[in-house]
Computed example of a mutant assay.
Amino acid sequence: MRKLQIGSPSVTTIDAHKYWNATDICLEIGASYRFEVEGEQFWYDARIRSDADGYTKPWLHWAEMFRRKPNENWFSLIGNIGQSGEQEFLIGKKLENYKATSSGELFCYANDVPIMYFNNHGALILTITRLS
Score class of each variant (00 low, 15 high):
66 F>C: 04
78 I>E: 08
25 I>S: 01
23 T>Y: 05
28 E>G: 01
127 T>F: 02
131 L>Y: 02
63 A>W: 11
106 L>D: 09
12 T>A: 05
24 D>N: 15
91 I>N: 03
61 H>K: 14
23 T>W: 03
2 R>T: 14
18 K>G: 00
117 Y>V: 07
100 A>I: 05
117 Y>W: 03
125 I>C: 08
116 M>S: 14
46 A>H: 11
13 T>R: 09
123 A>F: 11
70 P>F: 11
42 F>T: 09
9 P>A: 10
6 I>D: 14
44 Y>C: 03
64 E>M: 11
81 I>N: 06
111 N>C: 07
96 E>I: 09
23 T>V: 06
34 R>Q: 12
105 E>Y: 02
123 A>I: 00
29 I>E: 15
27 L>P: 01
4 L>W: 10
36 E>P: 00
26 C>V: 14
84 S>Y: 03
85 G>I: 07
13 T>W: 02
110 A>M: 11
98 Y>F: 15
69 K>V: 15
22 A>G: 15
8 S>Y: 10
18 K>T: 07
109 Y>V: 01
126 L>K: 02
129 T>Q: 03
53 D>E: 15
110 A>Y: 02
109 Y>E: 03
128 I>Y: 03
33 Y>H: 06
100 A>G: 08
95 L>D: 01
42 F>R: 06
11 V>H: 05
89 F>S: 07
112 D>L: 08
115 I>N: 11
20 W>V: 06
117 Y>R: 06
16 A>G: 05
71 N>R: 14
